[in-house]
């Protein structure tokens, strides 16, 4: 591990001021905020992350879950995943988020991982994680050995010729479906970013994963007021029964009236280079009868633009089945 200075800022402003000195907030940042450490320490051990300064933000009182004035929920950036998943309001009104989190990682990691950290979770692509390998995300321009190598678990949506790395988060898939808003404080003040705008597609710049700039501190996430009568489900498919990243997952929210779908939100995980909201699927569902044919059509629509690599063609059909079944089970719930 690269040697670093460990700093515990006393307030967010000090943290932001210290972080603003970093050259970048993206890959290669020389100042990093430390939340649960589950991603950052892992990558620091691998020398994928080599910050000179580590800012411990765990004692900045960003760990509250509060109701918002409009009936939504405000979730502090250092709220632990397990606290969020087990929060009564989340379990009642945002079940898909609770399920997504509880399907991720292990109980220990969920006790450590923070909401803010989970928004910034890095890909599990084995080439990204090994500094002996080339990787456009880690070292822009060095090449992508995954495209001609081991890519079974990698992305089929949102890929580019430079990067096919999957976003591994479960929580983010639910937040994409829930249309969460991310609140950021930076050296130029605070701003809000809608969930769909937060993560970037790899394109020609796979090292840029989010819109964050140096000094930007995620302070909290807000969820809009719950959709009345929304049937929610998170379904995750993987090789083993637990403690594994998704091969395909789906977060779905359906409101059904008189057998017709009046409101639908769909996001996919394990298949996209970012948490994959699917407006195509939502369009295919809106106003349609809640039946198997509609669900399958939505799944077809969601995967229409999928592009397989040498080892992961199966993920297209797996994701279709995942979404079809999630919609079916949600509609019956």
């Amino acid at each position: 591990m690269h040697i670093f200075e460990f700093i515990r800022p006393t307030d967010p402003a000090a943290a932001i001021a210290a972080a603003a000195q970093s050259k970048t907030a993206q890959q290669g940042a020389d100042v990093r905020f430390m939340g649960g450490g589950t991603t950052l320490i892992d990558l620091m051990k691998l020398n994928v992350e080599t910050p000179d300064r580590v800012l411990d933000i765990n004692r900045l009182s960003l760990d509250k879950i509060e109701d918002t004035a409009d009936g939504g929920l405000k979730i502090g950036a250092t709220v632990r995943n397990s606290d969020l998943a087990n929060h009564p309001k989340v379990q009642k009104d945002y079940l898909v988020l609770s399920q997504a989190i509880l399907n991720g990682a292990s109980a220990q990691i969920r006790n450590m991982a923070t909401v803010g950290g989970n928004l910034l979770q890095r890909t599990r692509c084995v080439y990204f994680r090994d500094t002996a390998m080339s990787c456009n995300k880690r070292e822009p321009g060095s090449g992508c050995p995954a495209i001609t190598g081991h890519n079974r678990t990698l992305a089929i949506l949102g890929t580019s010729e430079h990067c096919i790395a999957t976003n591994p988060s479960d929580m983010c898939v639910a937040m994409a479906a829930l249309e969460a808003t991310i609140h950021v404080q930076g050296s130029k003040g605070s701003r809000v970013v809608s969930f769909g705008d937060f993560h970037l597609l790899p394109g020609n710049t796979p090292h840029r994963e989010t819109v964050l700039e140096p000094g930007d501190l995620i302070t909290h996430v807000t969820l809009p007021p719950p959709v009345v009568g929304s049937k929610q489900l998170y379904l995750k498919l993987r090789d083993r029964a637990s403690y594994e990243f998704a091969l395909a997952s789906a977060a779905v929210m359906l409101t059904i009236a008189s057998g017709r779908i009046t409101h639908a939100r769909v996001a996919l995980g394990g298949v996209g280079t970012k948490p994959w909201r699917s407006p195509e699927a939502e369009t295919a569902l809106a106003g349609k009868p809640a039946n198997d044919a509609t669900f399958r059509q939505a799944a077809e629509a969601a995967l229409r633009n999928a592009k397989a690599q040498s080892e992961n063609k199966f993920k297209i059909e797996l994701a279709r089945r995942c979404l079809t079944y999630a919609l079916k089970m949600a509609s019956m719930s």
Binding site: Y127, R240, A241, S242, F245
Partner: peptide, 15 residues
């Protein structure tokens, strides 16, 4: 290339 316990999977309790 899968030289770790997340990518080389062994049976967990739930399996």
């Amino acid at each position: 290339i899968n030289s770790n316990l997340a990518d080389y999977m062994v049976t967990v309790n739930a399996d």
